[in-house]
Design a protein around this nucleic acid. Structure first.
Length: 188
DNA sequence: GAAAAGATTACCT
DNA sequence: GGTAATCTTTTCC
């Protein structure tokens, strides 16, 4: 594991790039949320890109009350509620974002962040965090191991749980990682 | 204004 | 394998 001194915080310059590229490079990044009870953090292993002209994108029809955070500056957090859980995204460019789908537990080490709802629960993210900007000094920060450590092979495939643009290959995950979520199929 | 669907998950048989 | 929980947005009358 990379030590914290060995990581670089991701800021606006990182997120202000094409969404699919940001999504792919977020794999292996560490999301940390500071909370009164102590910090929580996970290492991302699965994400999905939601882009322009994408019918599955919440921002497809322009700004609304729910999705207004998606039109904030690069690095804005977009958190929304679905059924009984919340899902978190990192905004790249206006109307585009990366859904955080699954991660490897770091703190606490015995958590289960496999799945967008579980990941948010582990991190303690709620709709109150919607619109926050990630950064070194904020409540939420995203860091990436520095150096040339090559990541595992990245798998690219269709997104999960949507009913429109179902075949677009905008889901990225680390090959063979045990924490990658499964689309409702039996666990081998 | 009312009804249905949704970027999900836990618990049922 | 299937359905309920629960609430916001979308869609239809």
């Amino acid at each position: 594991m990379a030590r914290s001194s060995n990581r670089r915080p991701l800021g606006r310059a990182f997120f202000d790039r094409p969404t699919t590229r940001v999504a792919k490079e977020l794999l292996g990044a560490v999301v940390t949320v500071r909370a009164p009870g102590g910090a929580r953090s996970v290492q991302l292993v699965e994400v999905e890109a939601y882009v322009a002209n994408d019918p599955a994108n919440h921002a497809y029809r322009g700004p609304t009350r729910r999705n207004r955070s998606m039109f904030g500056p690069p690095g804005t957090l977009y958190v929304y509620r679905i059924h009984q859980v919340v899902c978190a995204n990192l905004v790249t460019r206006p109307g585009e974002a990366v859904l955080l789908r699954a991660g490897r537990p770091l703190v606490p080490a015995d958590a289960n962040p496999s799945g967008p709802g579980r990941l948010c629960r582990v991190l303690g993210l709620t709709v109150a965090d919607d619109g926050e900007r990630v950064g070194r000094h904020g409540r939420i920060s995203v860091t990436k191991p520095r150096g040339t450590t090559p990541t595992e092979p990245v798998i690219r495939g269709p997104r999960i749980g949507i009913s429109r643009a179902v075949t677009r290959p905008l889901r990225f995950s680390l090959a063979g990682d045990r924490w990658v979520s499964r689309p409702r199929r039996r666990a081998t």
